[in-house]
Nucleic acid binder design. Structure first.
Lengths: 349, 349
DNA sequence: CCTAGCGTTTTGAACGTTCATACGGCACGA
DNA sequence: TCGTGCCGTATGAACGTTCAAAACGCTAGG
């Protein structure tokens, strides 16, 4: 016979107390304040807990403590997923980090920012979550303002672009540093005319990466005139912009792209002109998406430390929730460069 | 001044009752059994609920009803994500479908099947979820057996491959039908020697798709001898197998692949031999991953109806949870073919 | 006129946990 | 001997909701 009683919900704190010959409160203390118990009592209670397979009922605990031990996080749409799998890797790491801190993660999908705020409001009023993780922050983000006004606890993955002083906690990856690392790497490979293929002016992330390219070029005394072009993300736009950089009279010999999609387009532009990507013209991407390792030549790309970001975010959020920290905490993480053939030409295909 | 009182958790059922001049139970009924109330009372109570921004406290409700209104679902690892973004699209749809049925989705990430079972056990004993959605089912899946033994409610996205009779509910996409549709489409395009590039024998999904190819070839009286090759998923394996199909004395003039990754490899094999993919040799993939629309030629691919699958899964699970249905419910959905240039050659590049 | 029955609303209890506090025993110092 | 303080444990209440059942007002039927 299977010990189904141990695996199913059923044993409650009273059953454990009876079994161990102590009061309910002592069982509670065994789990929440073990130091308050006499070692012998603790051992006996823990043995009973183990034997009966007891876990505190989440609802009862939440009701009493007024805390759900759940973190809410919006699941981004397909579109964002297509952009490179960054958000999935992040979500995965977030779940693991939350679990380590004994928090659950509640995900929800919504159409737009307004609906996301509705979801926030609903979850807060139902006391279904203790706090949120905000992803995909951007200029004029209504969500952060709303959460601040509502008094909800949250940590953003991404900076509050445009805001003067940090009004809320965030953790982000230093995109500019990632681009700088790309340029440095290209310089070390002997490339001198490093073009930039980025996103249109105005987006925080896009401007930041452009800034990184500028800084790196200045630091290495590289030319910048007519070497930066910007458009919406996509393989086709990447190809078009890279093409223009290559067709200039003084054409680029390397192209730094702000996304792997644009980089894949850039490689196409290079090859369409009879040049060898990675040898005649180097190309780098951003995000180290699954595609980066699959395309040929393999794409040199900036990899964000998503596991670390998730871990830090959970830490900052739980500190906020438990009152261990008060004011806004901010943290900028440094990405790493994954070098492949598109910038080294070591492998011919 | 901001009406923060209305947006924060705070107003409880007693406050609403006082405001509307009725008892707590009447407020409860207004939300759960509105037909029991006099229309005038209902209107008055709903107005108070609206004015105070009241939402029932989830923990209290769960505690009383012994139901969390939460569905648990494992978030698959990066590896599976790389396979084509199917699982992300599914998760997104699952969240939306759950929300429509007033359920929340709790996601967790684990390393292996054993840990997943531990997570199940933990969530059940804490009464943190009412049921599970199982993804990535396969032969000798311990998870379904464990859940059945533990008496937990769940619906699998994917068939219990290998089991004789359905012991639990599942919803799946008819992969064989997807491959059949691919073959039919290729025949209509005039191709006759349709090769198959699949996964190794033994996996439920892989064998099913192979079966679909066999059926379609028989139905259209196409040759099958030496036209099916199988290996682990990947761009490189796809290229290798397709290469062997093309190098045969009586070579294939079309190649059906069980994944977009293998299909991308197959296109490479075609082009490496100086042939034009989509014209000389057609190629089809599976899953309609983001890459399928980006590569050139665009990849004809089988698209799974994931939104519908998620919706049906939530429906079946909630029926199970509310006792509206008893025995195992099973449902097989038909995928659609997204036709692009890799099988039609309409666009040259 | 009484009662049965229906529709609507209220009352008390219960879900399982933790908080605040009270209690008992023991060691110690006065 | 008697407080005093401390450690370990127990008791009652409370969190906010819904269930089960009672009570209310009204109409209809005997």
């Amino acid at each position: 016979m299977v010990r189904s009683a141990a695996t199913r919900a059923g044993a409650n704190i009273t059953a454990v107390a009876l079994h161990a010959g102590v009061s309910r409160q002592t069982v509670s203390n065994a789990l929440n304040r073990p130091s308050r118990l006499h070692p012998d009592t603790l051992a006996r209670v823990l043995a009973s807990i183990d034997e009966l397979g007891y876990r505190p009922n989440q609802a009862a605990r939440s009701l009493r403590t007024q805390a759900s031990r759940v973190i809410g996080c919006r699941l981004l749409s397909e579109e964002a997923v297509a952009a490179g799998g960054v958000i999935d890797r992040f979500m995965h790491s977030l779940c693991i980090a939350a679990r380590e801190s004994r928090y659950d993660v509640l995900t929800f999908a919504v159409g737009d920012e307004g609906e996301e705020i509705d979801a926030f409001s609903d979850l807060i009023r139902r006391t279904a979550v203790d706090g949120f993780v905000l992803t995909g922050t951007h200029r004029d983000d209504r969500r952060a303002d709303w959460l601040l006004r509502s008094g909800a606890q949250f940590v953003a993955f991404g900076r509050p672009w445009g805001a003067a002083s940090p009004r809320h906690s965030w953790v982000d990856v230093d995109g500019a540093a990632g681009v700088e690392a790309s340029v440095r790497h290209l310089v070390e490979q002997g490339f001198r005319r490093v073009g930039f293929v980025g996103w249109p002016e105005g987006s925080g992330v896009g401007d930041d990466r452009h800034e990184g390219w500028l800084r790196a070029c200045r630091a290495h005394r590289l030319p910048i005139q007519h070497l930066a072009l910007r458009a919406e993300d996509g393989v086709d736009t990447g190809e078009a912009l890279a093409g223009r950089l290559l067709d200039r009279s003084r054409s680029a010999d390397a192209i730094v792209c702000v996304s792997d999609r644009m980089a894949i387009g850039a490689v196409r532009a290079v090859e369409a002109r009879g040049l060898v990507a990675g040898v005649d013209v180097a190309v780098t991407g951003f995000d180290d998406s699954p595609a980066a390792g699959v395309v040929r030549p393999g794409l040199t790309s900036v990899r964000q430390p998503l596991e670390q970001a998730a871990r830090r975010i959970v830490q900052v959020l739980t500190d906020l929730l438990t009152g261990r920290s008060q004011g806004p905490v901010t943290e900028l993480l440094t990405p790493t460069l994954v070098v492949r053939e598109s910038s080294t030409g070591t492998a011919r295909w």
